[in-house]
Design a protein around this nucleic acid. Sequence first.
DNA 1: GATCAGGTTTGCA
DNA 2: TGCAAACCTGAT
Length: 279
Amino acid sequence: MRIKLKDDFDLRKIAESGQCFRWKACQDNTYRIIAAHRVLTAKQLFASGELELDCTQAEFQGFWRDYLDWDTDYKSIRNRVSTKDHFLSAAAEEEQGVRILRQEPWETLITFIISQRKSIPAIKTAVETLSRRAGDRIVGGGEPLFAFPTVGQLRALPPAELAACGLGYRTEYIYDAARSLPEEEKSLYALSRLGDEELFHALTAFKGVGKKVAFCTMLFGFHRLNAFPQDVWVNRILGEHYPQGFDLGRYAPYNGVMQQYMFAYYRAKADARAPQGGR
DNA sequence: GATCAGGTTTGCA
DNA sequence: TGCAAACCTGAT
């Protein structure tokens, strides 16, 4: 199917914004996306301002519309940026099209636990390995693809298997997270009812989850658009451009979106300077 | 083959 | 409260 884009939407910028690790770049502005037990191939048609998706209307309405956060108006969020803030204005302008996906909370939590002290390629490899070893095979032709494992699947995974996924010291964190949830729990949806502050505390209660991973999980897995993860990159930005501190009161409740613009913009510039290493 | 990577915990002042 | 050191292992 094809669908007309109505506001900010750029597949490449989303793919490179560091929030998702199961998007694979293909040729011609096309990405293969794995989410839940589904696969989607999406192509951006810049000439017509459309998106081409290899799913039906019903699948789009029933799943991908929500996943892609189709109904949030990012243009109006972007327009909140103060023109006096030169860095953020430039970032929002340049990174127009970034969106915050509505990813599965459990997958997001575990993925960001894995992310600590790993490069993005290494994170992707680890997530693929874990999915292959513990997740369901996604039905369909072509190469075998695997869904991210559920709570139960990770709990049931023999410790040796988990240890063989190349997760290093994070193995124990993941093991603990799966064991700490009630037997019948399939995900973390029960936490959705919590307010931001309570959710933050619930997440940091998991071993191996500190401030940064908790905020990433809130932003990308629970769609709390005000969560403002501070990693080394954001800290560099704040040091360079906001020596007096970034005013979190100003853009509430959309601090997380602003963070994404800043992050993507700064990273893109850093990559342009040092294409190989990343720094 | 050394160095580093989108962090957290632990131990010690 | 604040600051280092240690932690596994893939990627470069």
